[in-house]
Computed example of a mutant assay.
Amino acid sequence: MNCVIIEDEIPAQKLVKHYISKLPELTLIAAFQSALEANRFLQNNAVDLIFLDINLPDISGIEYIRTLNNPPGIIMTTAYPEHAAESFELDTICDYLVKPFSFHRFLKAINKAKNGHRKTMDQYTTMEEEASIFVNIDKTLHKILLTDILFIASDRNYITLVTLKGKFTFIDALKTWIEKLPDEDFIQVHRSYIINCKKIEKIKGNLVFLNGQGIPVGRTYKPQFRKRISLG
């Protein structure tokens, strides 16, 4: 994938360049500090993906996207998460990265872009509807609301999706669901579990309870989990 960076902050630009260099499937062909600098280049060169800051001189990243007739995939980068809702109104957006972002989060955005995703996973409904996802079990597609998911458990090659309305077990990898589910609601707390943070009832020792069921928090995942729920 041929990539272009439009970022006016040099340290942030260097970070994206460094992350791109780690992935052989990405080729950085140009970097600019403003959308106006990039405009002529983009009109004359084929680009698959743009890393685009929102706060740019002369014209904002969001305003610039609206001037493009056939924009490529775009990953927004910004230090201001309040712009997320506005940016996701645009169909060309693959993902939205809030600075500073880790390589893990960067890679997740790239995986979405490679699969041709827009806004969020293609299995999701539109932003105007309540977000949902379909799972295929025994040749039947089951629609599951993200707000109904309590946790996802992995056992060898099987996944069990535990929801408020029941359990769904099928062949899949937990890693796939780490990439599918939105970071703001879901977090991995154990090598075998992902939980919905909004469904946490209580925490006791190394167990987090959702709908009365205790889920273990692994030692490796505990610092990230404590940070997420603001326990330091």
Results as ranks from 00 to 15, higher is better:
E201K: 03
R228S: 13
K227D: 15
N45T: 15
N211F: 14
K204F: 11
H117N: 13
R40C: 04
Q123D: 14
I75T: 03
E82Y: 13
G218L: 11
P182G: 08
L28Y: 10
C94A: 11
V162D: 09
I203H: 00
L23H: 11
T126F: 08
I159G: 03
H104P: 10
V16W: 00
A12R: 00
N196H: 14
P223K: 09
T126Y: 01
N2H: 10
M1V: 11
I54S: 08
A173K: 13
E7H: 02
P57H: 02
F151L: 00
T160A: 12
L145K: 00
E86I: 02
A35T: 05
I195V: 15
A38G: 12
N39R: 06
N111H: 15
C94P: 01
H190D: 07
L141S: 14
Y124H: 14
K227W: 06
T140I: 13
F168W: 05
M76Q: 07
P182F: 02
L181M: 11
P72Y: 04
D148I: 05
L97T: 08
K222N: 05
F32V: 03
C94V: 12
P223F: 07
V16T: 13
L49W: 11
H142N: 12
E89P: 03
V4P: 10
F88C: 04
I29A: 05
F32R: 01
T120K: 10
S192K: 11
L42K: 03
A173P: 06
R228H: 14
P57K: 02
P24W: 05
F51M: 09
N2Q: 11
E63N: 09
Y221Q: 07
I229G: 08
I194Y: 07
R219T: 15
I20V: 10
E128A: 15
C3Y: 03
A38S: 00
I178S: 04
K199T: 02
T160Q: 13
G212L: 08
F51H: 07
E86V: 02
I137C: 06
T160N: 10
